[in-house]
Amino acid sequence: MLAIHPNARTTPAVRAEIARSPEPSGVLAQRFGVSTETIRKWRKRGPADCQDRSARPHKLPWKASAAERAVVCALRRATGFPLDDLTFIVSHFLPHLNRDAVYRILKAAGLNRLTPADRTRKPHSAFKEDEVGFVHLDVTPLPKLQDRDGVTRKRSLYVAIDRASRFVHLAVKDDEMAASAIAFLEEALAALPFRVTQVLTDRGSCFTADEFETACRRHGVEHRTTRPYTPRTNSMVERFNDRVQREVLSITLYSHQDLETLLAGFTAAYNGRRQRVLKDRSPDLVLRERLRAKPELAKPVTKPPDPEALPKALQMVAAAKEV
Rank of each mutant, 00 (worst) to 15 (best):
M1P: 15
L2W: 14
A8T: 11
P12V: 05
P12K: 08
P12L: 01
A13K: 08
A13I: 07
A19G: 08
S21P: 03
P24R: 11
S25Q: 07
S25V: 02
G26A: 12
Q30Y: 03
R31D: 02
G33F: 01
S35F: 03
E37C: 08
T38E: 13
T38M: 15
I39G: 11
I39H: 10
W42I: 06
R43E: 08
P47M: 12
P47E: 15
R53Q: 15
R53N: 14
R56G: 04
P61Q: 06
P61H: 08
A66N: 05
A66F: 00
V71P: 02
V72M: 07
V72W: 02
R76K: 15
R77N: 00
F81I: 14
P82F: 02
P82C: 13
L83A: 07
I89S: 06
S91Q: 11
H92Y: 10
L97Y: 01
G110Q: 07
T115R: 15
P123E: 05
P123D: 03
S125H: 03
A126I: 00
F127N: 04
F127L: 04
K128P: 03
E129D: 14
E129V: 11
E129F: 04
E129Y: 01
L137I: 04
V139E: 13
P141Q: 14
D149I: 09
V151N: 10
K154R: 15
R155Y: 01
R155F: 06
A160T: 06
A160Q: 07
R166C: 09
V168F: 03
A171G: 14
V172D: 15
E176Y: 01
S180L: 09
F184N: 02
L189D: 12
A190S: 09
P193F: 00
Q198N: 05
V199N: 05
L200N: 03
T201C: 05
R203Y: 06
S205I: 15
T208R: 00
A209N: 05
T214Y: 00
T214A: 07
C216N: 01
H219Y: 06
G220M: 08
E222I: 12
R227F: 14
Y229V: 07
T230C: 15
T233I: 02
S235M: 02
S235A: 07
V237D: 03
R239E: 00
F240M: 01
D242L: 10
R243C: 14
I251F: 09
L253S: 11
Y254R: 13
D258S: 10
L259V: 09
A269C: 02
Y270K: 10
Y270C: 06
G272D: 04
Q275D: 01
V277M: 04
L278M: 10
L278I: 05
L278Y: 02
K279C: 12
L285I: 14
V286Y: 01
R292K: 11
K294H: 11
P300C: 04
T302I: 09
E308M: 05
K312Q: 13
Q315W: 00
K321E: 00
